[in-house]
């Protein structure tokens, strides 16, 4: 589903190379995790895939179902089925969570040539999905992420994912700032969305999240490259020995 080949990325304003030849393939139905020390380029990879400004791709490519992502606008990538759950979800005062979600859902449907959801259809759908994530009606009415706790913001990200039904989901350090209960809730939300035609790329520092969202494949990223790939046991190795030993091995 997601294929990244020899991806080189630098900062637009600075002569600083962040990604130095990332190779990664995530087939449909699988959950892949990317772990790695701070500054290894994990978040940059998620931003470049979703189309954030400020980066320049100098070499390589990234495709979703064979379609090149890198030339698309962020909204086109979303309509193509890509979703990024933000590490720091953005607060948007004055725009209701419900209005925001409805705008997003219908914009994507429109972009794909599907019929837009009516108010009633949308309401029914969001109530059902929100209930599972323990998001109450009050939270839906409030402005996007304004006054939400860390856990509420992350649950709101998962609610958006559930509503938008993307095929390729990237979770950027979704576990950061979450207590154990909130993490379990978020993980349940993600697990509920696992399906044979959907894939996940879970970016995390810690193995903890992977206890709840079991990955099929674990990648270790360092200095802008995937340096090791393995099964879930690789995450345990990181947890026990830290990145130091692993990276020394790769040397």
């Amino acid at each position: 589903m997601l294929e990244i080949k020899n991806l080189h990325v630098k900062l637009e304003d600075e002569d600083k190379q962040i990604l130095k030849g990332v190779e990664l393939t995530v087939p449909a139905g699988q959950v892949h995790a990317i772990m790695g020390p701070n500054g290894s380029g994990k978040s940059t990879l998620s931003y470049v895939l979703s189309g954030r400004d400020g980066y320049e791709v100098t070499e390589g490519q990234a495709t979703l179902d064979g379609e090149s992502l890198l030339e698309m606008e962020p909204e086109e990538r979303a309509a193509a089925g890509l979703f990024l759950a933000f590490q720091y979800p953005v607060e948007i005062p004055g725009v209701g969570n419900m209005t925001f979600l409805r705008t997003a859902v219908n914009a994507q449907r429109k972009a794909r040539g599907e019929e837009e959801l009516s108010s009633a259809e949308f309401l029914k759908l969001i109530r059902e999905k929100a209930r599972k994530l323990k998001i109450d009606a009050e939270m839906l009415k409030r402005p996007v992420n304004v006054g939400f706790s860390g856990g509420e913001k992350k649950r709101n990200e998962i609610l958006q994912m559930a509503m938008l039904e993307p095929r390729m989901c990237i979770l950027d350090e979704t576990d950061s700032g979450l207590d154990v209960d909130a993490m379990r809730l978020v993980a349940e939300g993600v697990n509920a969305l696992r399906s044979p035609d959907r894939a996940f790329l879970v970016i995390t520092h810690y193995q903890r999240l992977l206890d709840h969202i079991r990955p099929d494949v674990v990648h270790i990223m360092a200095d802008g490259r995937i340096v090791r790939t393995g099964g879930p046991e690789l995450a345990l190795e990181v947890e026990q020995n830290g990145y130091g030993d692993l990276l020394a091995e790769v040397g």
Partner: peptide, 20 residues
Amino acid sequence: FYLRSRGVPKERAVVLLVLS
């Protein structure tokens, strides 16, 4: 970027942010 990453076209995202 947050709004656009959810599929909201840029023009519409600008409108929402101005209203915000």
